[in-house]
Nucleic acid binder design. Structure first.
Lengths: 144, 144
DNA sequence: CATATATCCTATTAAATCACTAGGCTTTAT
DNA sequence: ATAAAGCCTAGTGATTTAATAGGATATATG
């Protein structure tokens, strides 16, 4: 019942891009240094985000990545589901077609639906822009 | 981000005991047949529940297991946390002492706390007695 | 007391997943 | 032409998962 490093790193990566959303592309090397995550692993993760159209890449020198849309447009759920695969607490809830034979008589299915709703209620509501806001709130506190 | 089979089986096991809560001990063999889970695996899972005092065992012929308390006394969270270890969505939230160095400046921590609260809000509210009720509701629907 | 029936306990294992690392290929600004 | 970036695929060690296996121990019943 854990969010994997892949999902967490993807979130930090997107947040890093949002915080450095100047128009200039951001290099993997910079993100790697700031977030203390290996360049190679970041490369792999950002490739998923790129293929999904969540970020735009610029190749060659002075290249890098930038967000494809505004931070408000990305929910945490979008990012985590893309990189984690699914946030459903049990496999039988993943697809439209539920293959489990016990389904009709499955009491716990109701429980899993409640859990799934609770999880979705959080991740589909919080956006990247919220994370950016929270970040600046924290910075404010440090100033005193 | 999944509940493992161990946790799901533990829940079905406890529900099976609750539905057969006659005072007579219930044998693993019966649970295994009803739930279609191997006896050996059930043995292992119920051993955890037994050590935690969630069930009481009777050894020897005519032996088996029964609930130590009433179904209302068990939340789904108790059972899942015991068998799964923890339901926290990230490792850095598990212990009282949080070892992560980024903690102070960690924006996502706030998100994980929201997620953790949402999950706990469900599993700490639903009891074994609720599952029993839901089960009988379903049975009613089948009668028509 | 003997026996069958149950729980109890520890070890092993095949498969899958996770969290990376490695190395070369392609594009493009200078 | 060159160097700096992203792009792509494969490999790998460690850990976890989901069991199986096999015997030890307790006890109700005849």
């Amino acid at each position: 019942m854990k969010i994997s490093t892949k999902g967490r790193y993807a979130l930090r990566l997107m947040l890093d891009l949002a915080l450095n959303n100047t128009g200039e592309p951001v290099r993997i090397k910079e993100i790697s240094a700031r977030q203390e995550i290996s360049e190679k692993y970041l490369e792999q993760i950002i490739s998923t985000l790129n293929k999904a159209g969540y970020v735009k890449s610029v190749r060659g020198p002075q290249g890098g990545y930038r967000l494809a849309k505004e931070p408000e447009q990305y929910t945490v759920g979008m990012i985590l589901r893309l990189t984690e695969g699914s946030l459903a607490p049990v496999a039988c809830m993943e697809d439209e077609v539920n293959a489990c034979g016990r389904q009709a008589s499955c009491v716990t299915l109701r429980l899993w639906k409640m859990l799934d709703d609770a999880i979705s209620g959080v991740v589909d509501k919080v956006t990247l822009a919220d994370l950016v806001d929270w970040q600046s709130e924290m910075m404010d506190n440090y100033v005193i």
